[in-house]
Nucleic acid binder design. Structure first.
Lengths: 224, 224
DNA sequence: TACAATATGATAATATTATAACAGGAGAGG
DNA sequence: CCTCTCCTGTTATAATATTATCATATTGTA
């Protein structure tokens, strides 16, 4: 059993942030860092960093700290960024096109192999060197290329059916931007939902909480 | 002191999801729902739903449950979606333009009042009925319109300086899509970071964990 | 009107997560 | 070589968050 079996979601969610900060340090030429220094930089406690890292192994050295380059590489390995997951994008509307152009798939563990849409006006256009294909050809494509993951930038009305269809074709990992919650009814799928609207509403709540406190004369509370 | 002072972040993060599900129920014409039914629908425990809602007040009735329309409205109030926060968008590149077109600001507590960029080729174009302005005019605009929030779709190199400039102009709420972490060095700001890359890497981790277990012959673990 | 069924809100119990404490290994300097 | 300081990995403690329990109120029905 690998040591990283059963690592809690909270820890996993922090890994990419560690990875980013270590990448920055690496670029700046920093070669070593202690958990205390990194904690100060990232607004965390040193304890948390040490404990997080020790879920996967002891990467540091007593009296020295952590080697930035080595730790950066280790975390990439832990997240599996080195082997690229073949991926298709469904829905080449505004959002889909931006995701295709904006994301650095290769440095995040993915490789975009195909883009699909149902709109005849869009089909045939080129996006990032890939021709947008008719979604009708999904099945043929999957049999040939066996993509592992799909990015869903499609309306919520069709999200459920599309995801089910993809699973039948052997694709069961989803980066889901549709407003449909793939949380339920998808036993055996690996899902990461992105709800930008939720994020915006959360901000709205925080803003109101902040200014409500201010208007009452009290000190605005520090966000927790 | 309002009852919602000091509500934990975990609860706040669930509010938008409640809001979405209740909205769906409302559209379907469902008038009442019990915490048990809602829990089943949302993949939560009934206890959690009741406890979450009771952070803000007792919206239900014993023996009856919750009135869907009333609860939906209450949550909108709690999040402050009724009064719109004046907002500006910085950076009208791919991502910025998509955010401007794709988000329903008005139903999420915001109103997009201005769009700014530094690229002369973009300045002057129209986006969602707003003319993209030269970022040099930010100060003048803020003095006139007093936007409360800013959406940052700008490169990480300029994120820190831009945010500091905005705060000096009285804008201290940020929806941050730049790869710079506004977590630190921004005491007194309300920040919601969106790191799509982090989300993607998290998915990568989950995929590897899932297939690693499978290859070892064991049952793929249920995502926790 | 009485009674069974239902469902909340509050409280208690449990589980999870984060922080602090500490023992001991490694580096640095004389 | 010895000592002092630094810093990790681990264990212990504290803080949060989630789930279960229970008293009580309302609905629906006969």
């Amino acid at each position: 059993m690998p040591k990283n079996a059963g690592v809690s979601r909270s820890v996993v969610r922090r890994l990419p942030r560690y990875y980013r900060f270590l990448g920055e340090l690496l670029k700046k030429g920093v070669t070593r860092i202690s958990s205390r220094e990194l904690a100060q930089l990232m607004q965390l406690t040193a304890s948390q960093i040490r404990q997080d890292l020790n879920c996967f192994g002891g990467f540091g050295q007593q009296g020295y700290g952590y080697n930035v380059a080595a730790l950066h590489k280790e975390i990439a390995n832990i997240m599996g960024l080195n082997k690229l997951n073949g991926t298709i994008l469904l829905g080449a509307g505004n959002l889909g096109r931006t995701i295709a152009k904006h994301m650095h798939f290769e440095s995040n563990g993915f490789r975009l192999d195909g883009i699909f849409d149902v709109n005849p006006q869009i089909i045939g256009q080129t996006l990032n060197g890939l021709v947008i294909q008719d979604a009708a050809g999904l099945s043929t494509f999957c049999e040939a290329h066996h993509p592992r993951a799909a990015i869903l930038c499609i309306p919520k009305e069709v999200a459920y059916d599309s995801a089910k269809e993809l699973m039948a074709l052997g694709v069961n990992c989803f980066w889901n931007f549709s407003h449909y919650d793939l949380t339920l009814n998808f036993e055996g799928a690996v899902v990461e939902n992105v709800h930008l609207g939720d994020s915006l509403m959360t901000l709205c709540y925080q803003i109101n909480a902040y200014y409500a406190d201010e208007e009452e004369g009290g000190q605005p509370e520090k966000a927790n």
